[in-house]
Design a protein around this nucleic acid. Structure first.
Length: 253
DNA sequence: AATCGTCTCAACCGCTCGCAG
DNA sequence: ACTGCGAGCGGTTGAGACGAT
């Protein structure tokens, strides 16, 4: 009740992070580990709230993050897990090493959801959407679908959103989006990664590396890499292989 | 070249959860 | 059992990038 804000908002910086702020945060965490986020900003000399620092670290600065679009197999795994777990992005993300809940959530909302809709699959229920599902417009407002206004994608009463969907597949392969992702926060954080000489590859981080060593001059980030040898993602993909595929996969292949 | 519309995603907000006292 | 606090989660927003006209 009346919980106090996580931080004194007065005088705190908001918005995109600068390279300088990123450096401070990285240096502090690599030196001290992830101690209480609330106290971190002051200790690290940042004019940010702890929440903001935590998000920045977990969603962008962590060395074990993968970058770039989800692979096809990752996407399938996300769909499978979403069918089981719903919008529990953090749970889903825990099954995809190197991916964050925010990233998966964004990818779901911008790509997968539209893809499924276009295929006539309800992204919430993972079942086919047919006109017979909503024979009565009034029923179409059933509570279970509060997240997804019951649309009739195939019908002519397509919303503007639906109309947009029609255009989705001509969206260019987002290599640009990829390259942007790392460069796009870019404006704010390109610099920091340049400084750290992070190779544009997938990262593996078992949580046991000696963080301090990361600050050593002779440290090689490559040491943390997992070779992308064939089934590199076995850890992540095993559950997928063993799972009884949701039938919706058929549409994605 | 300029303008407009759309898309993407980093970041924020508000709420819930879990734990300690 | 209750309260307060820190952390985490999911939904939403807005700035910037990009394509179309």
């Amino acid at each position: 009740m009346g919980r106090q804000p996580c931080c004194d908002k007065v005088g705190l910086k908001r918005g995109p992070w600068t390279a300088e702020e990123d450096k401070k945060l990285i240096n502090f965490i690599l030196t001290n580990g992830q101690c209480c986020w609330r106290a971190l900003p002051k200790l690290a000399g940042l004019l940010r709230c702890g929440k903001s620092c935590r998000l920045r670290w977990t969603n962008y600065l962590r060395p074990d993050l993968k970058r770039g679009l989800l692979s096809e197999s990752e996407e399938k795994l996300v769909i499978d897990l979403h069918a089981q777990l719903g919008n529990r992005w953090s749970k889903i993300a825990s099954q995809l090493p190197g991916r964050t809940d925010n990233e998966i959530k964004n990818h779901w909302n911008t790509h997968i959801k539209k893809k499924l809709k276009k295929m006539g699959i309800d992204p919430v229920t993972h079942r086919p959407i047919t006109p017979s599902d909503y024979p009565d417009p009034m029923k179409a407002q059933s509570p279970a679908k509060d997240q997804e206004p019951p649309s009739t994608p195939s019908s002519s009463s397509a919303t503007t959103q639906d109309t947009k969907l029609e255009d989705m597949d001509r969206a260019p392969p987002t290599t640009t989006a990829n390259s942007q992702q790392s460069s796009s926060s870019s404006s704010s954080s390109d610099g920091i990664f340049d400084d750290l000489h992070l190779p544009p590859m997938d990262w593996s981080y078992d949580g046991n590396i000696d963080l301090i060593s990361l600050l050593q001059d002779d440290f090689k980030w490559e040491d943390l890499l997992v070779k992308d040898e064939g089934n590199s993602n076995t850890t992540a993909m095993d559950p997928l292989n063993q799972a009884s595929y949701d039938w919706t996969y058929e549409f994605l292949s």
